[in-house]
Amino acid sequence: MHPFTDEQLIDQIGAGNPAAFAQLYQRHKHALYAFCLRLLKDRDDALDAVQETFVKIHNRLSTLNDPASFRAWMFAIVRNEVYANLRRKKNLEGLEGEAKEVWEEGTPLDSVIGEERTELVQRLLGKLKPEYREVLMLREYEQLSYAEIAAVTGDTESSVKSRLFKARKALTKKFMPYVAERKEP
């Protein structure tokens, strides 16, 4: 589907081909927008963050030492934009370091009973604190390896493993009783 790899496009951009940047943008815009929207929960904020991310990618691409790590580098930039936005909104409680609680406020399962399972899981995902939500999204939707997620978040791999585990465990525990209820006739 895509005739060129990211690395080839980056080479082309370095050679001064503006169409290569357009193709790189077309390839990654949806993933970055989805990442921002799921973390910021606001369309306009997500658009701002993605636009700013591509401006920074455009301006800083020449500083990328290893083109093979482009995706992790790109997600690190967009993550910074997201967190800058969250900080501006003074919604950063628990964002620095390891949070004590996995859930944001107000996550009772009661309010979601009756929804379809997919909606339920999406709603629960949206209720995870950003530092847990982001690792889950980078793993599940972007298929980044633990090492790549660690590069994005600036953490160690073991920290990523730990956060992924806590996020999954929290989601799974909320989900399990619902599944059990649904099984009953």
Binding site: K29, H30, L32, Y33, A34, L37, R38, R43, L47, V50, R117, T118, L120, V121, Q122, L125, L136, E140, Y141, R168, L171, T172, F175, M176, V179
Partner: peptide
């Protein structure tokens, strides 16, 4: 349950940039 959660995460509607 973990498998089901993963499957439901994958079932989520695809988000596309406007």
């Amino acid at each position: 349950a973990s498998l089901q959660v993963r499957a439901e995460l994958m079932n989520a509607e695809t988000v596309t940039a406007p």
